[in-house]
Simulated scan of single mutants.
Amino acid sequence: MSARFDGMRCSFLVPGDLNAHTGGYTYDRHIIEALRASGWQVEVHALGDGFPSPAAEALARTARVVEALPDGALAVVDGLAFGVLDELAHRHAQRLRWVALVHHPLSLETGLDPARQRALYESERRALAAVRGVIVTSPFTARGLDAFGVPPSRVAVVVPGTEAAPPATGSGGEGLSLLCVATLTPRKGHALLVEALASLQDRAWTLHCVGSKTMDAACASALCDAIDKRGLRERIVLHGDKAEGELPAFYAAADAFVLPSFHEGYGMALAEALARGLPVISTRAGAIPDTVPTEAGELVPAGDVVALRTALLRLMEDPAWRAQLRAGAMAARRALPTWRQSGARFATALVDAMQRPHAT
């Protein structure tokens, strides 16, 4: 990071466990590390569990954290919590300088009933009206904030970074080794992937899924049942949660990356796949087209199992196309920002937000 911000201070308010192995928390950890490396004094405050549906205890804890912040403090709040803290945000809007970090709007989570979706939209819209600035992780999410009444002048895009990594060496076997890195939640589309692969059992492939099986236990249980019902237990391996340092080995041994999400605010796992030159099969949902160039992957409509199956079949049967996508991924990796660069952009966005007047 070229600029120094010695003496600058901010408080980072994080719901849940900052050390959790999800894309959002990985982003938060790297940004905090980069800010500190450039001279920022960053205090991290844990808000408790259960967001965006916190229990009374977590809300009380959050209120105590916010009330203890000194007047004029720059408070960066992860959007998983901030979107449901609308009353608290407005209560302290004159005293604190709020910055919301929105990975993706809460109301766009898959599987919400209409009433819950509307309630999340309204609370997030009200909360965002209290901020000095909003930092998002993709141009797609920035464009989407128009629907929440956030002026573009208050929005900064800071895409996730990647670290330099060697190209994947692949499985070296006869069949393809497919990799999916994502928590087992409905939004990530694992069930659709199992359905698509079930009719391709006469081809040689294995699927390695890395991601938490406890974040949504019901989803994980249903996925295990679907794998067993389709007779795919020997073909699909659910590795569970893995630390960030363990992931490079999975990427290195993969031949291609698959993520049939219904929505992504960026898709950090996709960027990590590109950083290793892996061909990508994903969807046109959310920010994924911003993340994966057409030369590096095949993007199908979200929820379209036939299109997903067709793309996977071509990946298995057309080595020339697979090599073409790999070449595209190798080219795309050169354009990916480092965490150092993303941290510098985040710091600049914070300074800009500090200088703005209160929004309401």
Rank of each mutant, 00 (worst) to 15 (best):
A55N: 10
A73L: 01
N19K: 08
M316T: 07
C224W: 15
M1I: 04
E264D: 11
C219Y: 11
I135T: 13
G297Q: 06
H239W: 01
G175K: 08
A307N: 10
S38I: 01
G343P: 02
L299K: 04
D86R: 10
F346L: 00
R36A: 13
Y121D: 11
R154A: 10
R4V: 11
P139R: 11
E33V: 10
A252E: 06
E264M: 08
P248I: 06
L101E: 01
G267W: 01
R356L: 13
A331H: 01
G286E: 08
R126E: 14
R334K: 13
A302L: 12
R95C: 00
C219R: 07
A269Y: 07
I236L: 04
L336H: 06
A191F: 10
L193I: 06
R187V: 12
A329P: 05
H103E: 00
R29Y: 06
V131E: 10
A165F: 10
T338Y: 05
S11H: 15
H103S: 00
A165G: 11
T169R: 11
E234V: 09
H208I: 03
H21A: 13
T360K: 14
A198L: 09
A344K: 01
H103C: 00
S123Y: 09
V136W: 03
V306M: 14
S177F: 00
D318M: 15
P139W: 04
E163S: 12
A198E: 04
D86W: 08
E264A: 09
A256W: 02
K242S: 07
D6K: 08
A226C: 08
M330P: 02
R125F: 08
G245T: 01
G39H: 08
K242V: 09
E57C: 09
A331F: 00
T110E: 15
F346Q: 00
A332Y: 04
A275V: 07
A217F: 04
E87H: 13
W98V: 10
R276G: 00
G189Q: 07
H239R: 02
S177T: 02
H263G: 04
R276S: 00
L223Q: 11
Q41K: 11
E298V: 15
A73V: 00
A220S: 12
V300L: 11
L18I: 12
P301I: 09
L278M: 06
L106T: 07
L308T: 01
V42I: 03
G175E: 08
P70A: 12
S38L: 09
M215Y: 14
A323K: 11
T310N: 15
I135N: 10
T214P: 12
V66A: 02
I135Q: 13
S123I: 07
D290A: 03
T137H: 13
G267V: 01
T22H: 05
L74T: 03
R61Y: 04
R132Q: 15
V66Q: 05
E33C: 12
R203E: 14
G23L: 05
N19P: 02
A217Q: 03
L193S: 08
G24Y: 01
A89G: 11
V102P: 00
P105Q: 05
Y121H: 15
L88Y: 02
A129Q: 13
A55F: 05
L193N: 05
V159I: 13
L336C: 08
D113G: 10
